[in-house]
Design a binder for these strands. Sequence first.
RNA 1: GCCGGAGUGGCGGAAUGGCAGACGCAGGGGACUUAAAAUCCUCUGCCCGCGAGGGCGUGCGGGUUCGAGUCCCGCCUCCGGCACCA
Length: 824
Amino acid sequence: MRDKYFAQEVEEKWQKKWEADGAYRVTEDPAKPKYYLLEMLPYPSGRIHMGHVRNYSIGDVIARYRRMCGWNVLHPMGWDAFGLPAENAAIKHGRDPEEWTKSNIHYMRIQLKRLGYSYDWDREITSCNPDYYRWTQWLFLQFYKNGLAYKKAQKVNWCPSCMTVLANEQVVNGHCERCDARVTKRNLEQWFFRITDYAQRLLDNLETLTGWPEHVKTMQHNWIGRSEGMDIEFPLADIPGSLKVFTTRHDTLYGVTYVVIAPEHPAVEALISGKPNEAELRAFVADVIAQEDIERTSEETEKIGMFTGSYAINPVNGEKVPVWIGNYVLMEYGTGAVMGVPAHDQRDFELAKKYGLPIRVVIVPEGGSADMELAQAYEGPGVQVNSGPFDGMHTDQSRQAIADYVEARGHGRRAVHYRLRDWLISRQRFWGAPIPIVYCDACGEVPVPESDLPVLLPSGVKFMPTGQSPLVDCPEFVNTACPRCGGRARRETDTMDTFVCSSWYFLRYTSPHSKDGPWSRAAADYWMPVDQYIGGVEHAVMHLMYARFFTMALKDMGLVGVEEPFTRLLTQGMVLMGGSKMSKSKGNIVDPDDIVAKYGADTARLFTLFASPVERDMEWSDEGVEGCWRFMQRTWRLVGQIMEAKQVEAAADGPVEVAREVRRAAHSALKKVSADIAERYAFNTAIAAIMEFVNALYALKDQAMASQSGRKAVDEALELLILMMAPFAPHLAEELWEVTGHAGSVHDAAWPQVDESALEVSSVEIAVQVNGKVRDRIVVPADAHQEQAVAAALASERVAAAVAGKAVKKTVYVPGKLVNIVVG
RNA sequence: GCCGGAGUGGCGGAAUGGCAGACGCAGGGGACUUAAAAUCCUCUGCCCGCGAGGGCGUGCGGGUUCGAGUCCCGCCUCCGGCACCA
């Protein structure tokens, strides 16, 4: 054995062997329990970063451990390959998006392979390949057929100078990031998925996801944002029609002093036209619409409004109330109209104060009165006043009573609204899966027949300096024949949101080469659901919600057998340097390539796992990496020194105590490591336990190697050590496995069993407390009874001094831990 | 504002209600070396003390308990997510 561990050399050797042997290829095997382990697939941005290393190292520990425990483990990898950066590269550097993406994938695949993850690379998927996106398109068609895909108009950010749609992230302070022109809004007809149909199920099912972190479920819960209330019709006073408002506080219905609608509300036109200040009103509406939603809904933004000059009628008391337009009302939520109850809603209160609108109290708290002066809105419960037939009723009852009353008179009905909005999937982009729809002059909107899929992206297109999607200007793509009548038709030029591609990739992995469907039903039934999903918490809402929605919808269509895709979810923390997230702009990047080149893959893996618990953010530390590298070398030397010691004759027998200590160290480490991997995912403490074990072996080895019984114990200890290291440092473990004379791969070996008898001890050190304060430490037999332990404790000089002159009131004995003597 | 998470040595962190600080880093001392690096051994929470020893310590204030980093109540700070959601 060489006296130094040459990581790069050894890692290359085993990576080649694993690949040649197809060591991590899997097939459906009904004889074994399956385990589907999945890490969120990366976007091929160019190079992997430490966040990827951390994510995949966590996954690889679980995958390798499960394999050793006898599970049939599916552990795949692929690429979320459509998206905006490829197009930016095309515009900025004239690169072909496909060429750019593929070369990134090529490089990143090499990087991942150098890290030695146990992926089944035969299952690699790439979402921008036609053999993948034809099925994304096929799934769109299934959603379309089932009424889950539809078109409607929606505002988008528009750069008037680039003549292109902008993503939110391309808008910087209301200006185009590229040309700095003021961004405007534009209405476009776009495709949506009807995720709101599933709002209640997405909400209800959260309770079944017992393997998900509570904070992620809470975020999804709040994102869905269910609220119960009433839709109430306020007839217009001057023109025909009515305004439907949504309220959760119909108990305050008699306190309405105005109605506010969103500037985008369809009634705005009728309400303001012909008014003396119409021009001013139009300017106001245009102004508010141009504001970002974020800005409009931010707490700092002042609540502003304008009277339309029109009135509506409160249906329960016939009062004429002014209709206002307000910046704080959103068309996307509820009905786009709310009733203004300044006495009992803080936002309404602020608007009323600002514009001098009347404030009428209709709910009086205990100790209050109907004519109380309000410094702010009172939003709590109380007794109804100024509320017609409901005066004197407590809000506990009035909520029901008023709802019944309004419904009985046909003024409105109980309603549930969700914050969740339908999923806008249209993107006015080139680098995405084309939406498989054509528009025919005669037949209208026609879905592309499944047999005509995929609708291929044209290749070799030129990106206009305007930034407009080349698909629009690509006649060979746009012009087509109508699948229904054969007449002239044009293709939809929008492509799909990349979140669509990543909402079903976990199903594709189960049978990635399937040609007659997006997946083989048998394979999906064998592997699904994903047993453990791992990724960043930034996907807690959108990606995870979309994937859940997809799986539910597909279940309803009879395409899959499960309703929830991910049984257990782990959200790993970020990799920080100097307290903030590693990023190019901050210049605090550590390139995984550099670490692998200097220390090897195992060290990179070991450090990212050891530095902090998986769910917490971790701070990068060059010295910490060095420490992990030293630990690997130290382990290597330990094995080398033991192998060398074997060359010397040993005494036939020696003290049994040394062998026992070696075995105790080995099996207590094994117990801790097994529990930390399987139950807690506490890889940092598992590694710490292995380090302690190595330290213990260093201390014991010389003595132990002197006798045959000691050598036997050391042999066992080394074997356990190597097996325990296998999930964390797979290359080092594999090499040591070979060096110590084992045949086959350590990764095919069975995870060892703890020998509880090796953990038994005859005596233990326990703490002695007096009134809860530690005064001494004593050694007692492991099976000592309370009287024995207390007697031994009182025999201690220090304890006696602390107890002296006081009466012992009580003693507490926790075997193996402590004695507490309570004196008074 | 709402929701979630976190506050422990010089640093990353450890601790089923039971010896606070495992393990690692950094630092001190020693061995080896002509020397350095590497390695090995050893010390290392803070304060007082020559010492034996004593006191104080897990963001702050209370509480429960024989015993609280851990449980309960009330705050503070930081991080993340969402945010005028009617």
